[in-house]
């Protein structure tokens, strides 16, 4: 079991060290210019290939998960969000799923009673939802805040976001709330996988690797901002060089930054090949993005081909004499 998290953990350490030492050995142009471009390319191409592949696959059945009363007789109240029969209901359901993770909110856990009866009971387990929501929103804020390195002058909406994120005004450089919430939530999600026996049993290396990678990215980023410090103007010169296609490697940037950038590049390149593709996949879940209207509308399997069918009328024409002889009821006597 341990190799499932020790190998990803060692991999993240190794990747960091590769960039840290590599940049020190004069390979800054590779870790700072070549690899980030390749990673963005791999991310985009991989993402498009994955989603177009999904778009091309057939979805022959109406299989929405129904979590409430479906549309029925007029005096029975329908649950319009959890069992939608119209596109607007589906859109509302999808928006709530994407922005508030409603299906995680319903998460339950099964456990045996501790008393003599030893019965299995199901209880509401909200902490996966809390952790996931905190993690995703903190990550979103962190990504958006990083636009300050890719725009000059920085748009006021990004500055506003920074002001909100740093609203507690603790310490200097000012503490960002997302910088606390992101690692805390990622550590919680990791602790779940490590210490909950049932979740540990279903956790693979591919579940641990992204968590360690994101924790490594957060740790290097937090270290650069609050503790070890870097030449921020030099770094922005470099990131602006990347996005304006005139890459430069300024002096004195330091191995820690290259380690951070390399881990981010690895995350981008790894993204389309991993479970992280739920970013695109959440929109394409057939159990969520379909209306439950099978009682009102006939859905024909799109790849149906013509098969020779033998209707009852033909059957009766064929066997009428024998049926009458055997005393079976027939629709037409002659």
């Amino acid at each position: 079991m341990t190799q499932k998290y020790l190998i990803p953990l060692a991999a993240v350490f190794l990747l960091f060290l590769v960039a840290y030492t590599g940049a020190g050995a004069g390979l800054g142009w590779f870790f700072g210019i070549v690899f980030p471009y390749l990673a963005v390319l791999a991310f985009l191409v991989g993402f498009v290939v994955k989603v177009t592949g999904w778009a091309a696959s057939a979805v022959p059945f109406r299989i929405p998960t129904t979590c409430g009363q479906q549309k029925s007789l007029p005096w029975i109240k329908q649950n319009c969000i959890d069992n939608p029969d119209t596109s607007s209901g589906v859109i509302l359901r999808m928006l709530l799923e994407i922005f508030t993770f409603r299906s995680l909110f319903r998460n339950t856990k099964a456990a045996f009673n501790r008393n003599a009866s030893n019965r299995i009971t199901y209880s509401w387990e909200i902490f996966l939802w809390v952790g996931a929501l905190a993690f995703h929103y903190a990550f979103l804020v962190v990504i958006l805040r990083h636009f300050r390195f890719f725009t000059a002058p920085v748009p006021s909406c990004i500055q506003f976001l920074e002001a909100l994120d740093g609203i507690v005004q603790v310490g200097l450089p000012g503490l960002f709330l997302s910088g606390v919430v992101l690692p805390a939530a990622a550590l919680f999600l990791l602790a779940r996988r490590l210490f909950d026996a049932k979740v540990r049993y279903v956790s693979q290396a591919a579940d641990f690797f992204p968590l360690f990678l994101i924790l490594g990215i957060a740790a290097t980023g937090i270290s650069m901002r609050y503790f070890t410090k870097v030449d921020i103007v030099g770094i922005k010169e470099m990131t602006m060089g990347l996005v304006t296609f005139s890459p430069v490697i300024p002096d004195g940037i330091g191995g820690l930054f290259y380690g951070h950038l390399f881990l981010v590049s690895i995350l981008f390149a790894y993204f389309p090949a991993s479970k992280l593709m739920h970013l695109g996949g959440v929109f394409l879940s057939p159990t969520r993005n379909m209306a439950n209207n099978t009682r009102a509308k006939r859905h024909v399997n799109p790849w149906n081909y013509d098969v020779p069918i033998h209707t009852y009328q033909d059957y009766e024409d064929h066997f009428r004499d024998k049926m009458i002889e055997a005393g079976l009821p027939v629709e037409k006597k002659e």
Partner: peptide, 25 residues
């Protein structure tokens, strides 16, 4: 799906095109 994918690709590439359409300091 293709429309959503196009929007996503544009959003990912936003640091690149944003600096093309605005003057960079």
């Amino acid at each position: 799906i293709m429309g959503g994918l196009a929007v996503f690709v544009l959003a990912v590439l936003s640091p690149f095109w944003f600096n093309m359409v605005t003057t960079t300091q």
